[in-house]
């Protein structure tokens, strides 16, 4: 069953993430696809994640299709203008890609080519609007297409914010994204079911399926690093201590993640597991969470 059918029929969806590597060696991507294809409904393919140049998300999404894993083609506005973005969307459709996740994209200054020209001709909201126009059979300049796609478009949101303004801005932006055509939402990593529950109440009126983002902890150090450096990620001290005290950190990390998924499941429509290098452990997390 496709991700779209699953979410539209109200079934709990599982997505994960596959990150292309720098270079032409696709062994790891193919291995991850083979391992995950019967465990998850779809896998996000990141687009030059953290502004680090690597194999593209379009080609990698094609590899996943060949290996039988449904891709969610991540598309950022950082590197392409509206002509290239729309053209790549048409290319994606003819390659068999059905899901697109629209993102603004990290600044080049954060990546490995900091002197690159940032584009941002469109943003995540106008990109979603563009996807809607293509689906309707027109480009954003109003020209008619010969043959049109039917993308299932998604967007992201940050659940935990450190200021009132930031929280309100995230919600207002999410409203713009849904109004512009987002049909599913994946969230930044959450670690507290309480705060996630509050967030879900705020966005219930939007009537759009939400997949809660989770990142399994590998160590206490990783948790502290994310708290310090990743906007919107707040790992509670209690979990950090649990990781610090754990003898078997891998097993503890998987268990914490699975317990969290169990608590999040009644609150939302799916889970998005961002394993960050731990793709091979995703099946264990899913099993431990009882999904």
């Amino acid at each position: 069953m496709s991700l779209k059918s699953k979410l539209e029929s109200g079934k709990f969806a599982i997505t994960c993430e596959v990150g292309p590597l720098k270079g032409t060696d696709i062994t790891e991507v193919e291995e991850a696809a083979a391992l995950l294809k019967d465990k998850v409904d779809a896998a996000n393919v990141t687009d030059q994640q953290s502004s680090v140049m690597r194999l593209g998300s379009l080609a990698t999404s094609g590899i996943l299709i060949n290996k039988g894993l449904e891709p969610i083609y991540q598309m950022t506005c950082r590197d392409r203008n509206r002509i290239a973005l729309q053209s790549d969307l048409l290319s994606a459709w003819v390659m068999g890609i059905r899901n697109v996740l629209a993102l603004t994209g990290d600044l080049p200054a954060l990546g490995d080519h900091p002197a690159a020209k940032p584009v941002y001709d469109l943003d995540s909201v106008t990109l979603l609007h563009a996807i809607g126009r293509l689906n309707a059979g027109f480009d954003i300049a109003g020209n008619e297409l010969k043959g049109k796609p039917a993308f299932f478009a998604g967007a992201v949101v940050k659940v935990d914010s450190d200021t009132e303004a930031s929280m309100e801005l995230q919600i207002a932006k999410l409203e713009r994204k849904v109004a512009a055509g987002a049909k599913f939402i994946q969230t930044q990593a959450v670690y507290s079911a309480d705060s996630f529950g509050k967030f879900m109440k705020r966005v219930a009126k939007l009537k759009v399926p939400v997949l809660a983002g989770v990142i399994p902890l590998k160590s206490a150090g990783m948790a502290r690093f994310m708290n310090k450096n990743v906007s919107g990620v707040l790992v509670p001290e209690e979990l950090i201590e649990k990781m610090a005290d754990a003898e078997d950190k891998t097993a503890t990390g998987i268990q914490i993640c699975a317990d969290l998924i169990k608590k999040l499941k009644p609150l939302c429509q799916g889970v998005h597991i961002m394993a960050i290098g731990w793709e091979k452990k995703v099946p264990s997390i899913i099993q431990a969470a009882g999904l």
Binding site: T104, P118, L169, Q170, R176
Partner: peptide
């Protein structure tokens, strides 16, 4: 930094820009 006209990206920390 990104010249965004439809609201902020996700990179705000305590009201400051992540960049």
């Amino acid at each position: 930094h990104k010249g965004l006209v439809n609201g902020p990206c996700g990179g705000t920390n305590n009201g400051r820009c992540e960049v």
